[in-house]
Amino acid sequence: MTTQILVTGGTGRLGRVLVPRLAADGHAVRVLSRKPSPQTCHGDLLTGEGLDAAVAGVEVIVHCATGNGRSDVDGTRNLVQAAARAGRPHLLYVSIVGVDRVALPYYRAKLACERLVERSGLPWTIQRTTQFHELVAWMCAVQRWLPVVVMPRGVSFQTVDTGEVAARLAMLADAPPSGRVPDLGGPEVRPAADLARAYLRSRGGRRPVVSLPMPGLRGYREGGHLTPEHADGRITFDQFLAA
């Protein structure tokens, strides 16, 4: 059965994978964007402009949009209010593993967004995931002009494939509202430096990787962002690099 679905952040890293997946499943998908185009519908999460029209008639909203923290909270509040006026569609929110355990401003903002969704009065689902493979690749790529690659000492990551996250979200969009669902983590927990070496090998690089202590990452060092009990992803970082 065709479902009317609105995706926020549909042009971002996750959204670009999710939108065609939903369309292939036979759903009618709208992509929210501040810039109107034939492929998107206009709506600004920060100002609320256009949101009432964007959510009108939709049955599911998949909220993937993310920004710099504070804007996430304001945008989520505006979206929740518009959805409440539109007839209470199912709101599916994408969050991060450890938002209640890692004391970083971005994580605190994501936790505040979760609270807005939970208290919205809407039917809701929250899916937390670990970091995407692309994050670690980006951390290495931005250092391409340095003689070494610097990674945080004592920190491991459990990166997950974007396509697998999209598949989980597509399944949840088809399901009844489920509240807080089990976390989704990548298949392996690996030290940050080990992941950087794998990245360099995949690019034929020979630079050394240096692990340095970095302030403000206590929650990461304690593993608050990991979910080894939910290592449900199957595509490893090395497989992602090979692809």
Rank of each mutant, 00 (worst) to 15 (best):
D194L: 09
S33F: 01
G50R: 00
A28V: 10
V80S: 04
H42N: 09
D44S: 13
F157A: 10
N68S: 13
T130E: 03
T66W: 03
A196K: 01
A170P: 09
A65S: 07
E59G: 15
V73G: 03
V136Y: 06
V31D: 06
A53M: 00
G223Q: 08
G50K: 07
E118N: 04
R180E: 15
G75D: 10
K35T: 15
L18V: 03
M1C: 12
L116H: 12
H27F: 11
S95K: 00
L32N: 13
G154Q: 09
M171G: 09
R85Y: 04
R218S: 14
S120E: 02
V165C: 07
R207Q: 11
V94I: 14
L14K: 03
F237W: 11
C64K: 01
P177E: 02
V19D: 02
A193G: 12
W138A: 15
M1A: 14
F132V: 02
F237L: 03
L226Q: 03
L172C: 11
E118Q: 15
L92N: 05
R13L: 15
R190L: 15
E222L: 15
D194M: 01
D174K: 11
P123L: 09
G121E: 10
M214N: 06
A28K: 07
T129L: 00
R13F: 07
V160N: 00
P228L: 06
P187R: 08
P208E: 09
P147K: 07
T3P: 07
V148M: 00
G179M: 08
P176T: 09
L200P: 04
T159V: 12
A196F: 01
G87Y: 08
H63R: 13
P105R: 06
R101C: 00
V62Y: 01
V58R: 12
G185R: 10
L92E: 09
A28M: 07
P152A: 01
V149L: 12
G57S: 14
L172Q: 00
L226G: 06
V117E: 01
G75C: 02
R70M: 11
L46Y: 12
G15N: 05
L241S: 05
D161G: 01
G216P: 10
L172I: 08
Y106A: 01
M214V: 15
A175W: 02
A65E: 11
V210D: 00
S120K: 03
P36N: 04
G12A: 12
L32F: 06
A141Y: 14
Q158N: 04
R168S: 01
L212S: 03
F157L: 11
D161V: 08
P208C: 04
G26F: 09
G57D: 08
P147G: 09
A53R: 12
V29I: 06
D100K: 05
R115H: 14
H90S: 07
G223W: 00
A193R: 01
L18S: 10
A23D: 04
A54K: 01
V80G: 09
R128T: 05
G26R: 05
R108T: 13
G87F: 11
P176M: 10
M151W: 02
A53W: 06
A192M: 12
Y199H: 13
G57A: 14
G67D: 11
W145D: 10
T47I: 04
M171L: 14
R70N: 12
A175E: 12
V29T: 02
V99N: 10
H42D: 05
R153K: 13
Q158W: 04
